[in-house]
Design a protein around this nucleic acid. Structure first.
Lengths: 191, 191
DNA sequence: GACGATCTAGGATGATCGTCCTAGTTTCAA
DNA sequence: TTGAAACTAGGACGATCATCCTAGATCGTC
């Protein structure tokens, strides 16, 4: 029960972070969205808003990481294709109002300098590392795998911003096409 | 004088938008940062915070667009190189606390749906169009030019987020390398 | 069955938010 | 010179914010 209450608040925080950002996310929003009473906040999160946001970030990070770890294909290029398809679905959902919780926190300066900034960095790095490992497992050289993994995460973040503003996926499709071409060449150029 | 007061507020708003996002940017911040009195706000911006943010967005958009229009090189690939160098400088500055004002507004759901969202979309599109026209002027086919321009803007936005979180430029350099390769191949593949 | 620890519950608080208001000041055309 | 328009100036307003507080409820352990 207790774990359930806390978890509901974390997931609500993650969703509100995605939809309105850190500063605009109030505890009133969270209690209404999660259906938990106000007094529970500082019992489960003695550190207040920062601690809740931090846990929401960590949770979002591991959720996405779990999706990334499920990617599987016989070739490196197959991984790229799967990733692009996967995040296209994610962007479709996002257009309805959500963006990326990690990006939302990164936008905030105060959070960026403090605990939350470090947490956001760790989340991004973990995503990149998971992707890199996937490519390395397909016999892609380590540095090249890191290049590709980083490019894919940056493509996701950039697309989140631009497609959310425009309300359509054309921008992503064009950037994805360019990225696919570039990565394919990189992969073919290896010995 | 009047124009000066208004302009100072707009530029302060743009900077605060970059550093802390829309919701966290208060009028108290703006008056302190710009050195203008509180009563002036609703004289120059009857629409309140939304109108000020909108003007800050428009101003940021034209500032960046001006930089983009200054890009000049003899070859399409030269343009890409210049763009990458140019936004690398921008990212160096950004690491000290600022991100992109347009992205900051896009994160906010309420603003994204309303007037500000439309404004943000227009700004992104204008950047893409300027870049596209640059490539078309170098005899790159229109659709391919749009692909490349879109990719470059998405690269900028994604890098802004990730490098701000990590505090270093390695992510950008890796993504830029991949993008450069991909675009080069696209350009060489044309007839 | 009782007791300490954990959790739920909602209200109170001071600070800060965006917005608005009423004066005073400057500018400039007639 | 004068009067209207444009602008400066700072305070006041209700609403909302994050935080904290005190009780009641529930649980596991002796």
């Amino acid at each position: 029960m207790a774990r359930d209450t806390k978890q509901r608040m974390i997931e609500s925080a993650a969703e509100l972070l995605r939809s309105k950002g850190l500063a605009a996310m109030s505890f009133t929003d969270i209690t209404e969205h999660s259906g938990t009473p106000r007094g529970v906040i500082y019992h489960h999160f003695p550190g207040g808003k920062v601690e809740l946001a931090s846990e929401a970030l960590t949770w979002t990070g591991s959720e996405v990481r779990r999706h990334l770890e499920e990617l599987d294909a016989s070739t490196p290029m197959g991984l790229v294709e799967q990733y692009l398809i996967s995040i296209r679905h994610l962007l479709v959902e996002s257009m309805g109002g959500s963006s990326c919780a990690v990006a939302a926190v990164t936008i905030d300066e105060t959070s960026c300098k403090g605990l939350l900034g470090g947490r956001a960095e760790a989340v991004f790095r973990s995503w990149i590392e998971v992707l890199q490992a996937k490519f390395v497992a397909k016999n892609v050289e380590s540095e090249m795998a890191l290049d590709i993994a980083t490019s894919l995460v940056i493509l996701l973040q950039g697309s989140h911003i631009v497609t959310r503003a425009s309300g359509e996926l054309d921008s992503f499709d064009r950037a994805a096409r360019t990225a696919r071409t570039g990565i394919e060449i990189l992969l073919n150029s290896r010995q």
